[in-house]
Computed example of a mutant assay.
Amino acid sequence: MGLVHIELFATLDLVGQAPGGPDEDPVGFPFGGWQAPLMDEVAGAQIAAAYEGTDALLLGRRTYDIFAAYWPHQKDGQDGDIASLFNSVPKYVASRGRPDLSWAGSTHLGPDLAAAVHAIRDRHRNVKVVGSLNLVQTLLREKLFDRLDLWVHPIVLGVGKKVFDGGTVPTNLTLLEPPATSPKGTVHLRYGLAAGTPATGDMTAPDRGTNRDA
């Protein structure tokens, strides 16, 4: 069975809305494109490396529409490798509506997302979920993912859709490798889904060695 990898960009207050540009999600959000000033060569290389081995994309409707309007026309230049990848692999679109599937290799998923994700896992080894915040929140809530790549940027916005929003369920994650930083202060965290739910404890218990007379 293949793996579903979520790729997300977030602020310190975990806002994940419209990082790439002001037109991504313009209604009522004043910070579209907040990620651009914080990009550097290190973060760019991390993002490019995260796509290595991708053999399918799983996208929400809004992200799909943005990608379909952009990537088919990007064949040369610095985006060439990603453009070639995105244009060549199958694209699966999660949407309650009827998206325009003019981008070659696109498929509209049915209403049963869980069944659709399991079927995609059976067909592909490495499925990438890029952006698609509403879809991501469903995948997190239903635990329909295996890996989470999270780039946390050194800004606080105070408004906007958050990565972990209403409906998130208690979940354990395992840090798969040491955090990596970029010159502009972005931290790349790579997690894997772990079994069970978060445990609790008592930091004031005597067996913790707390010295109450200090």
Rank of each mutant, 00 (worst) to 15 (best):
H188T: 05
R190T: 00
L140I: 15
Y92E: 09
I82V: 10
E52C: 01
A56L: 13
K91F: 09
D81V: 11
N172P: 10
A195Y: 00
R61Q: 13
D55W: 13
H118Y: 08
D55N: 15
L148F: 13
L176Q: 10
T11D: 11
L109I: 12
L14F: 12
T200A: 10
P26R: 04
H124Y: 14
Q74C: 03
L59D: 02
T200C: 04
V117P: 10
P111W: 00
W103P: 05
Y51H: 14
H188Q: 11
L148H: 03
L113V: 11
R98G: 02
L101P: 02
R123G: 07
P154W: 06
L57Q: 04
P37I: 09
T200V: 02
A116F: 03
M203A: 13
P170V: 06
L140F: 15
T174K: 08
T107V: 15
F29M: 08
E7W: 04
K128V: 15
G80K: 11
R125E: 15
A205H: 14
G21P: 02
W34H: 09
D65Y: 01
D112T: 09
L150E: 02
N134L: 03
G77E: 06
P154F: 08
R190K: 07
D112A: 09
T107P: 00
P37M: 12
V4S: 07
I66L: 14
V93G: 02
K161T: 05
I120A: 06
R147Y: 10
